[in-house]
């Protein structure tokens, strides 16, 4: 099972955290500003591999932090 490292509280089981989504990226090839906004709001990279995302430690310090996670096997990178 997945454990995350909270910089404040230490290593904790994933149940203590809320997933806040990956850091949004918009592909460079989308140039129209309106289309970039739509992409930013709705579209996901849905990476199969290392994803950089925000997590909220709701059962602990109640602060956000950034995590690198491998979505292939759902394991923590940093």
């Amino acid at each position: 099972m997945l454990w995350l490292n909270c910089p404040q509280c230490g290593s904790r089981p994933v149940e203590e955290f809320a997933f806040g989504g990956e850091l949004p990226t918009v592909p460079d090839r989308i140039t129209d500003p309106h289309e970039r906004d739509i992409d930013y709001v709705w579209m996901f990279d849905n990476l199969e591999g290392v994803s950089t995302e925000r997590w909220f430690h709701q059962a602990g310090c109640r602060r956000w932090h950034t995590v690198a996670r491998d979505t292939i096997d759902d394991t923590l990178i940093t």
């Binding site: 509280c9 230490g10 290593s11 904790r12 089981p13 203590e16 059962a59 602990g60 310090c61």
Partner: peptide, 21 residues
Amino acid sequence: IEWHIPTHRPAFAQGYVAGVP
């Protein structure tokens, strides 16, 4: 408690205890 409880004293720790924050 599933997580590692600090061994030094004094120490402050927070997380699930019996599944409760």
